Simulated scan of single mutants.
Amino acid sequence: MRHISWEPFSIEFRDLVDNRTRVYTPDYLVEINDREGQRYRYIVEVKERREADHIAAAGSASAAGRAHIAMMRWCREQTDCSFLLVTDEKLIEKGLPNAKAILDRASHRPERSLLDLILSGRLGEFPATLGSVIANAERYAYERGEIISAALHACAIDELWFDITRTWDEEAILRRGSRRRVFLR
């Protein structure tokens, strides 16, 4: 991910129902690089499931629906942008438990030698699965729980990252560097 910002900008649009100029400010702008290094932007709006369902059902009959339609039009005019409506339910289901686990380890102080070992690449090159990091660190006589806590701490201090919408298990892919892929389709 190149960048994430909250309420990054506003657009003005003409509401054709009441012929008024309105302003819409999306919740987030997420900029990423794709696998080829091309920049892509997601305009992300987060709503409660009930509200998202209401907007979808009402469409242009609701002011919120018209605002979302205006934002989708704006995105289509760009060459590298998509609009995503994400429900809080989806965030909770997919990413919040992992985000909470990371935040819980932010103040955890793992043994410095273990953290250095994980981050050094001596356990194997990144990207690496959590399972391979555990197996290799166990060879240095570290215990599974402290290895997992150290890996989560490394995520909390932005030394490692993984796709938080995926299950945190031995198949989780750990990568070096700051957080990426916050929102996915």
Rank of each mutant, 00 (worst) to 15 (best):
M1P: 11
R2Q: 13
I4W: 01
W6N: 14
S10L: 04
I11T: 10
E12R: 14
R14K: 12
R14W: 10
D15C: 14
T21S: 10
R22C: 12
T25Y: 02
D27G: 07
L29I: 02
R35D: 08
E36I: 03
R39I: 15
Y40K: 15
Y42F: 15
I43G: 03
V44G: 12
E48S: 10
E48I: 09
R49H: 06
A52E: 13
D53T: 08
H54D: 10
H54V: 05
A57F: 09
A64M: 14
A67T: 04
A67H: 02
A70F: 01
M71A: 07
W74D: 00
E77K: 06
E77P: 01
Q78P: 00
Q78C: 01
Q78I: 00
T79G: 10
D80I: 02
D80R: 12
D80N: 14
F83G: 03
F83A: 11
F83T: 11
L85E: 12
V86A: 01
E89G: 07
I92W: 09
E93I: 07
K94R: 14
G95C: 07
L96N: 03
L96Y: 05
N98R: 07
A99R: 10
D104Y: 08
D104C: 06
R105D: 00
H108W: 11
H108C: 03
R109G: 02
E111I: 05
E111P: 05
R112W: 04
L114F: 08
L114G: 03
L115F: 02
D116R: 11
I118N: 08
L119W: 01
R122L: 12
G124M: 08
G124E: 10
E125N: 09
A128W: 06
T129W: 14
L130I: 09
G131M: 09
S132P: 01
S132V: 08
V133F: 00
I134V: 15
A135L: 14
A135I: 06
A137W: 00
A137Q: 03
E138K: 15
R139P: 00
A141D: 10
G145H: 06
E146W: 03
E146D: 04
L152N: 01
H153G: 05
A154F: 04
C155T: 00
E159A: 09
L160C: 05
L160H: 02
W161P: 00
W161Y: 13
F162N: 00
I164K: 01
T165D: 12
T167C: 14
W168V: 09
D169T: 03
D169N: 15
D169K: 06
E171D: 14
I173M: 15
S178A: 06
R179H: 03
R181E: 11
R181G: 09
V182M: 04
V182L: 09
L184T: 13
